[in-house]
């Protein structure tokens, strides 16, 4: 598969009281056509910021975003329009992201109007109906308003809206974490089925490792704005090579009583992104840290096929 999206040296700084927040620091990765790439990390890891920068909702401090060979980092709003049609977001909160004053038909038809898809009302309505069916909503949803739907159904509406412009790339930021447990699986199944059928590429941003592993082909693990590890989803979860990934996996509570799990409880707090530690940013909480870890920022190194980690120690994992 050919490369759809290249992120090169993406850096995002924000100025705040007390200094510069280094939200994302020199992050590079590729996304192939039809591939699902998971972005995991805890709060402050920069995962949401990366998604926003790719969508050009914020302007990167440094680095390049290349979509199908074209550098979109510096494009004007007007020049961005074709890209905006190709790259669509799905947000976490299906309550806040749908206009409460618009009917479902208007919500889903809006991207069609914006991008001039479908000639006339009739064709647009036909498309909206097809989209509703695709996401498993009844036809009579058309004339209703968002508040008349449950959280899961609202997320289906926002998925239909994202698909309306026939994008090649979906940026989904925590798309199931606001939903009830019994509804999450429905939406995960729907996203995966649509992704496979429409051969969509997807950047799947979430904190839930099990969900990310299930839906992603590859996974990037972020900590304090930097990539710690990247690799094929199965390999990375079953045999993590970076101490942070190992700790993250070990912290996930599993629905298995009386199973003694070896847990690495990280000590202390996330360091300030205004004044991150020297060298490896994870070293202040890493159980394997040695003095050399403070000396230089570890480069991402190959540790297996398509598998890289930013850690200078090899003998630990």
């Amino acid at each position: 598969m050919s490369t759809l999206l290249e992120v090169q040296g993406l850096t995002q700084h924000f100025s705040a009281r007390g200094g510069t927040v280094r939200a994302v620091e020199n992050v590079s990765f590729d996304l192939r056509e039809g591939e699902v790439l998971g972005l995991v990390g805890e709060s402050g890891s920069g995962k949401t910021t990366i998604g926003q920068a790719i969508l050009r909702l914020i302007d990167p401090t440094a680095g390049r975003i290349v979509f199908r060979g074209e550098d979109i980092t510096k494009l004007t709003d007007r020049a961005l329009k074709p890209f905006r049609r190709q790259a669509q977001p799905i947000f976490q909160d299906p309550f806040g992201s749908l206009n409460p004053r618009m009917t479902v038909e208007k919500i889903i038809a809006e991207p069609l109007l914006v991008h001039g898809i479908g000639k006339g009302r009739e064709e647009r309505r036909r498309r909206v109906n097809a989209l509703l069916a695709q996401v498993g909503l009844p036809r009579d949803a058309l004339t209703r308003y968002p508040h008349q739907f449950s959280g899961g159904q609202r997320q289906r509406i926002s998925i239909a809206r994202s698909l309306a412009a026939e994008p090649a790339l979906i940026i989904a930021d925590e798309p199931v974490s606001a939903l009830d447990v019994s509804i999450q699986a429905q939406i995960i199944n729907l996203l995966r089925e649509l992704q496979q059928r429409l051969k969509l590429a997807m950047l799947f941003i979430a904190h839930d490792l099990a969900v990310v592993e299930y839906i992603s082909d590859r996974v990037i693990v972020l900590y304090l704005g930097r990539i710690m590890e990247v690799g094929p989803a199965k390999t990375l979860i079953r045999a993590p090579k970076h101490p942070y990934t190992e700790a993250l996996i070990s912290a996930v509570p599993e629905p298995e009583p009386d199973r003694a799990k070896r847990r690495i409880v990280l000590q202390g707090d996330l360091p300030s992104p205004i004044d991150p530690p020297s060298g490896c940013v994870f070293r202040t909480r890493c159980p394997y840290a040695i003095p050399a870890c403070a000396e230089q920022i570890p480069a991402l190194r190959q540790v297996g096929p398509g598998h890289r980690k930013a850690c200078i120690r090899d003998e630990i994992l």
Binding site: V181, S182, A185, E213, E254
Partner: peptide, 11 residues
């Protein structure tokens, strides 16, 4: 239903 629907690590 709840137990089956929740994805687990390594699934």
């Amino acid at each position: 239903g709840l137990m089956r629907s929740v994805p687990r690590l390594g699934l």
